[in-house]
């Protein structure tokens, strides 16, 4: 008999209920899917042992499959040669956009203008591709590339022949910049706006100009998260598939100069899969290359997310959901 004054019973241990199973399974699904993807690619790719080699010799379809060589250097070089300049451009643009939003523009105007930046994220990749291929490429081929070539030709890499079609590395950098910009711009903007308003006001009250507030207060404060944003943008640029394939020219050789055709890792994954159907070791090599790209993407994203961090629970998930 418990009297009203005796201490309450300790709560019973929560009982197992079948109703808890579906939510738990759904919660485990992202982890399971990630593991499933890795395992699938590993099983599909490792049946012939390790096939890839770090050379420029990509020669999958010889009469004798045992003579095939899967050198991935061409694609790795192509990926970095396009993604790194795109990253630099994206970072500079994002910083300017963030500074303009945080300090220089009225709230309404910056909301509207940032809406355009966010809209860039909504355009499908393949649409960027067809636009780049038919509409932007002639501009690069007849005007921009020759102009850079004649005026800056003395810089190593900018001299030499220029393909007149406009397809090639510069166009790929341009398209990648547009495609990686929205994500990085949102993250940089958020991290600059996350600096406590009191810091900003203190700087202004001490007589600092807005530029000095940006340079000396906002930038040091948000440095870590801007680094994370840059890393995530880099990951996005490295993983971009369809659009880059359509505008880079798909040449299985090292680029001769800045204007030359090239090829990227995701590009070869999407572009040569069809021809690999009938040749098991070719298919396995592509799956291995997919595994390499997957590993790269995971490392970059883990690093980027860690640097960007989270604002409380939830945090920054979707680039577009600003």
């Amino acid at each position: 008999m418990s009297s009203p004054l005796s201490p309450p019973e300790p709560p019973a241990r929560p009982r197992f209920r079948w109703a808890q199973v579906p939510p738990l399974l759904a919660a485990a699904f992202p982890v399971a899917l990630l593991i499933g993807i890795v395992v699938t690619l590993a099983v599909a790719g490792l049946g012939f042992g390790w096939l890839l080699n770090p050379s420029v010799n990509w020669n999958p379809s010889t009469g004798d499959p045992s003579q095939a060589s899967f050198g991935i250097l061409v694609f790795v070089v192509g990926s970095f040669v396009t993604a790194l300049p795109a990253l630099v451009l994206v970072l500079l643009l994002s910083l300017a956009i963030g500074a303009a939003t945080a300090l220089y523009l009225p709230r309404r105007v910056s909301l509207l203008l940032n809406g355009f930046v966010d809209l860039l994220a909504g355009i499908p990749s393949v649409v960027y591709g067809i636009w780049g291929f038919w509409i932007v490429a002639p501009v690069f081929g007849t005007t921009l590339n020759p102009w850079i070539n004649t005026h800056l030709g003395f810089v190593p890499g900018l001299g030499g022949p220029v393909p007149s079609t406009g397809i090639g590395i510069p166009l790929a950098i341009f398209v990648l910049t547009l495609m990686a910009l929205p994500l990085t711009a949102v993250l940089v903007r958020e991290s600059l706006l996350a600096v406590p308003v009191a810091y900003r006001e203190a700087g202004l009250a001490l007589g600092a100009t807005r530029y000095e507030v940006f340079r000396r207060i906002l930038l040091p404060f948000a440095r870590r998260r801007i680094g994370g944003a840059a890393l995530l943008g880099f990951g996005r640029a490295l993983g971009e598939t369809v659009a880059v394939f359509m505008v880079i020219g798909d040449a299985t050789k090292l680029p001769f100069n800045f204007f030359d055709l090239s090829f990227t890792v995701p590009g070869v994954l999407v572009g040569q899969f069809d021809s690999a159907f009938i040749q098991p070791n070719y298919l396995a090599a592509l799956a291995q290359l997919g595994l390499v790209l997957l590993a790269f993407s995971l490392v970059i994203n883990v690093g980027g997310r860690w640097l960007v961090g989270r604002v409380g629970r939830g945090g920054i998930a979707m680039p577009e959901a600003a």
């Binding site: 982890v31 990630l34 993807i37 971009e240 994954l269």
Partner: peptide, 18 residues
């Protein structure tokens, strides 16, 4: 779970095709 979701969002889409 959130971390795994973030990684899936960041995956190149061609990987999902494979």
């Amino acid at each position: 779970v959130r971390g795994a979701g973030d990684l899936l969002v960041g995956l190149p889409s061609v990987i999902l095709g494979y």
